[in-house]
Amino acid sequence: MDRDNLPLLRVLEVSRDFDVSRPWLNRLLEGTQRQLLRAVDGVSLAVNRGETLALVGESGCGKSTVARLIVGLHAASQGRIEFDGIDLAAPGAQALRRRMQMIFQDPYASLNPRWRVRDIVAEPIRVLKLAASEHEVAARVAELLRQVGLVAEDGEKYPHEFSGGQRQRISIARALSGNPEFLVCDEPTSALDVSVQAQILNLMTDLQRGLGLTYLFISHNLAVVSHIADRVGVMYLGRLVELANAEDLFVQPLHPYTRMLLDAIPDLEMSGKARTPVAGEVPNPLDPPAGCAFHPRCPHANARCRRERPQVIVQGDAVVACHAVEERRL
């Protein structure tokens, strides 16, 4: 089989639990039980070579945890993650991790304040031994800084000498310096001002075209996602509720939660469209509702939704987990 047609990354039925119990002594004294928080619950998705897959959802929906599971900052409690067809948890698969890098949300926290920019950008080159000499490292760092719109002299400075947007450029340069194929971007523009966000999004688009990168783009901002993504996955309370092509999702959303999210976006065009009032808030993830997690807020919920957890069904190019869609009530 042609490897190039395989997805670059596959996430298969992955779950992740966090132990949020009180310390052992408190549990003993207060007579409480161990408590697990299921941050990611049976998520499956695939990212194709050269595309941008975006994951969206409100805070606490588990999208950032998925990102951290993929790059190995957390280990999956269940399920597996395959990169280029190989299970990342398999022995020897550690080498595969070099082919992916991550860009973080907070440009003020993601760069070591005590390091010079040239050392920050050079770290992956040195650790992965991608250059034969220090001279080569310096040349590569200068090239990377130019590639992200900075100048080579910026390498001598410390991170606090840069603005938020410039720091995010440094972050991108560091991610690129290990020559990755796959970049996991966790809310890379949500801490930035909108004009700076435009600069970073344009840069990311250019880099993707120039270097043939594949992106997993995590964001809560649907407008940003609609601009940059080829396909979009929507998460709610740790579960993937819908995954579709961006063109379809923003025009013809299937899942009631996706519809609700799209309805809630402030309308810049001021077309005066009638907005469905959005009810309720995300429930406590420690105590998720039975059946479909969205049913307490869903205008289309019925007895089955309250009882039975919907499985993912294929609907054209999209997948969706909703009884109402399956029963064609929607």
Binding site: S195, A223, S226, A229, E247
Partner: peptide, 13 residues
């Protein structure tokens, strides 16, 4: 102009 907008023609850059 720098604000990304949701709407028709999403995706496909």
């Amino acid at each position: 102009g720098s604000i990304p907008k949701v709407g028709r023609g999403a995706g496909k850059k």
